[in-house]
Design a protein around this nucleic acid. Structure first.
Lengths: 116, 116
DNA sequence: GGAAAATGAAACGTTAGCGTAACGATTTTC
DNA sequence: GAAAATCGTTACGCTAACGTTTCATTTTCC
């Protein structure tokens, strides 16, 4: 079901999450990287570089670089597509799932903490 | 009152907002900058470089640079404190308020769009 | 009044992301 | 099969943020 937020709640929620991330998390994903990561994990596969670039309205090198960085962090994985070897299929990882699970918990927790 | 979100809703909300920002907004604030901006506008003044640095658990140059950037964007302003001229008081601007208003609308809109 | 402390900014070299343009590998087209 | 198209990556120069250190200004402390 939809979530109804007041303007104050919406910004308060964003504030709480951003603050918490900045304070505690050394790992600092770009907004673009975050969008890519969430897309990979929330939208049914398969995901390709080209597809992500089109969906996010960014150029392909942006996707490649983000995958490089997040791959090094263990948040995503890449595999050649054997049916069309030009493609690269982006795979989810256990680490990535854990990372987003923690993010989800943080958002929920900040929602619960909103002023009464 | 607190907001109760499921894990799926929390991540879906984050996904929707991040996606929208990346797609449409050329202006791309860092997570740190975002946290600073939200803090300035949501927490009662006065705000100083030193105070923000302590609150966000970052070094002072991080705040100075963020204020430089966001100042150029017109999102915040700086004024010397006349009672203690070592301090700089960070001021809100009309542009900054507008920017956050739009962000709030985006969050609310994405909340409303969450799958039923 | 002079030393010490505090504040914000500037300087420095480093790292990482950016957009554009080119590239190699693969597949499709005719 | 050769030419064209497609896909992801790399190269290039640029910009911006990073952490650490140093600095100028101002205030506080004996």
């Amino acid at each position: 079901m939809p979530i109804e937020l007041t303007a104050s709640q919406a910004l308060g929620l964003w504030h709480g999450v951003a603050l918490n991330q900045v304070r505690h998390d050394a790992r600092d994903l770009t907004l673009r990287q975050m969008a890519i990561l969430l897309h990979i994990y929330l939208v049914p596969p398969p995901h390709t570089v080209r597809g992500l670039a089109a969906t996010l309205n960014v150029t392909k090198p942006v996707i490649t670089r983000a995958l490089d960085t997040m791959g090094d962090m263990g948040l995503v994985d890449r595999v050649r597509d054997d049916t069309d070897r030009r493609n690269v299929i982006i795979k989810r990882t256990v680490n990535g799932a854990l990372y987003l699970e923690k993010l989800g918990d943080l958002v929920r927790e900040q929602g619960r903490k909103l002023p009464v």
